[in-house]
Nucleic acid binder design. Structure first.
Lengths: 350, 350
DNA sequence: CTGAAAGCGCTTACAG
DNA sequence: CTGAAAGCGCTTACAG
């Protein structure tokens, strides 16, 4: 850890400009050449200048930063579990957590300037498919940043992500082993994010690995809410050749689907097997406990925060790219399909 | 809103000491008389001195402060919902939220000094029964503080709290109307906090209002976890004269109890009615949806934060004490007790 | 325990 | 668009 307290004097010397210019850049005052601004901000990030700090009082503050529009509200559902992980890791290291939204960034300031203004020394970043590029921009500026739950080919972008494919593959194999031939994928409709692609890919691979045909009619676009899940059940009931198992890709539709299935008098899992998705331990909070592909959002938060802290403590540390596998856990919502279905397919089962 | 940026010069003039003394007090330097320290800190809080701030950059930062030992982890369960409310209210007002733990306070610094060091301008405070007194101490120092989900007789302490008694009373009346004569209270064991007392009181009043006797054997101390709830069901099954309805006072035991009851083959609500507790909308995430006394943790968070912001904007505003009623919502886990029970009691029901 | 005064870091009106 | 220099707010070694 760099213990020397940095001053704008040092940034000025390093960059070959006056302290006046450094000050103007940091505060985004008008009338600065791009060249000067870029040089100063680069030096600031390289050295880790933190502003006029008070030796004894100085506490590192990390931002949990949302680069998403309102579709993802901080501290609800998945985000709450993630934030709990970030917080617990930071608390262990005497650092402070603030929650920020990039909507507050002024269009004429750089990310570095924005974070400086908000007094955060590093960020754990949440992006959506539409805002993924921001991770590259922040990293490009040299501001310490670790993305939580997305991944990038660009090796300079630090991230901690799941590999949804692992858990999904196990789920598919498990269902096939039980004798299911018609397995639906109820997949969230929020664009083509990494997770969406992973889950879709694992579904298709799971089918072919188990000798099952891909039927586009069995891929059901699903709104990520309890109502969305309930509606999937309704749709399946009207199908001429319905699935014997459905795999959901988010927790709320899983809950809604189980509930609707039971309400409609379906026996779960005898009439219908359901594999859900879980970010924490929701699957054990409901009855019947549902079989699920399990992420651990809190763990992702902890890993992202501690990786970020490592880089703040030593700026020469390279960005880390971590992938955590997801697990499949069989509980009470999966079982062998009814004989009649198997018979109809002319198959003897496993 | 006080737009003038305050300096230690003004605090010094107001207090009749030098700027050197003000600086020493703010940074908790040794060798300061109690008299000087108290006078300076009082003036600081009265005027709302915020440190050397950068006009344009200055963002109000609010602390969500935990004055509790590790029993209550920030951002889990109830705390996540509360934090979401605090955050959403602050975000609307361009203020920033940081999460703090009083364990980080040094024993030799005052609360005001601690918060100054952490760069927070006001706090939403969470206390436990053991740490309630802290709310008075912080308020005494004059530091802007609103307690979330506890209440105080001392009129100078601002708070936003539930009145659990309202919802509990309705739950008791509802069960009595259905014909229940033996109603258990499964109450959390974490000490004698305000909520604990409220719920116990409403239970007893509910019994007597409906002409039912209080039986101490029906008050079951319950650990606030799913296992705790499950264990309550196990205990009831061994009772010679078991309750026909159980009221739980926290969400996790509610979940655990319903699950255990169903696992044991009990019909809910035919064999046993269950009234649970809900902080958000967990009751609709499970099957069957449970009847519950409903708090709205997020709303408490929003109200606490906005009341705090009001006081920061105008320091002459008196602390507000707000009480929000809880509701009772009947769902699928409550119904009339089996005839046999009523017959055994020699009663004809409602 | 306290203040006058020097010093430090950042900001900004002024000059070019 | 930039720097030299004055200025501002806070801190701290020094003196009492």
């Amino acid at each position: 850890m760099t213990t020397t307290t940095l001053t704008i004097r040092q940034i000025a010397d390093q960059t070959g400009v006056s302290t006046a210019t450094v000050s103007r850049v940091l505060n985004n005052r008008p009338g600065i050449s791009d060249k000067a601004r870029d040089a100063v901000l680069r030096a600031v990030n390289e050295a880790g200048y933190r502003g006029r700090t008070n030796a004894s009082a100085s506490v590192l503050q990390i931002g949990l930063v949302y680069a998403v529009s309102s579709e993802t509200a901080p501290l609800r559902g998945y985000e709450a579990d993630l934030a709990a992980g970030v917080y617990s890791s930071l608390a262990d290291q005497q650092a402070q957590m603030a929650i920020l939204h990039l909507a507050d960034k002024r269009p004429d300031e750089t990310f570095t300037q924005f974070f400086h203004r908000k007094h955060v020394d590093g960020v754990v970043l949440r992006v959506s498919s539409a805002s993924r590029a921001i991770a590259g921009q922040i990293t490009e500026e040299g501001f310490p940043c670790v993305v939580a739950s997305d991944r990038f080919d660009n090796g300079s972008i630090g991230y901690v992500d799941y590999d949804s494919r692992v858990g999904m593959a196990r789920a598919m194999d498990y269902l096939a082993e039980l004798g299911h031939r018609r397995v639906s994928l109820a997949i969230h409709v929020h664009g083509e994010d990494t997770d969406h692609r992973d889950r879709m890919q694992a579904y298709k691979e799971g089918l072919s690995r188990n000798g099952l045909d891909f039927d586009p009619a069995l891929v059901i676009p699903t709104i990520s809410s309890r109502e969305g899940g309930a509606s999937v059940i309704d749709q399946c009931m009207t199908m001429a050749n319905p699935p014997t198992a459905i795999v959901f890709t988010n927790p709320p539709p899983t809950i809604g689907a189980i509930k609707r299935a039971l309400q409609r008098g379906l026996k779960v899992p005898d009439d219908l097997s359901i594999v859900g998705y879980d970010n924490a331990d929701l699957r054990h909070s409901v009855f019947p406990a549902f079989s699920a592909v399990c992420q651990d959002a809190e763990r992702i938060g902890r890993l992202a925060a501690s990786s970020l802290m490592d880089r703040l403590q030593d700026r020469s540390v390279a960005p880390v790219q971590t992938v955590v596998p997801t697990l499949f856990e069989a509980n009470e919502t999966t079982g062998a399909p009814r004989k009649s279905f198997k018979a109809a397919d002319g198959l003897s089962g496993m």
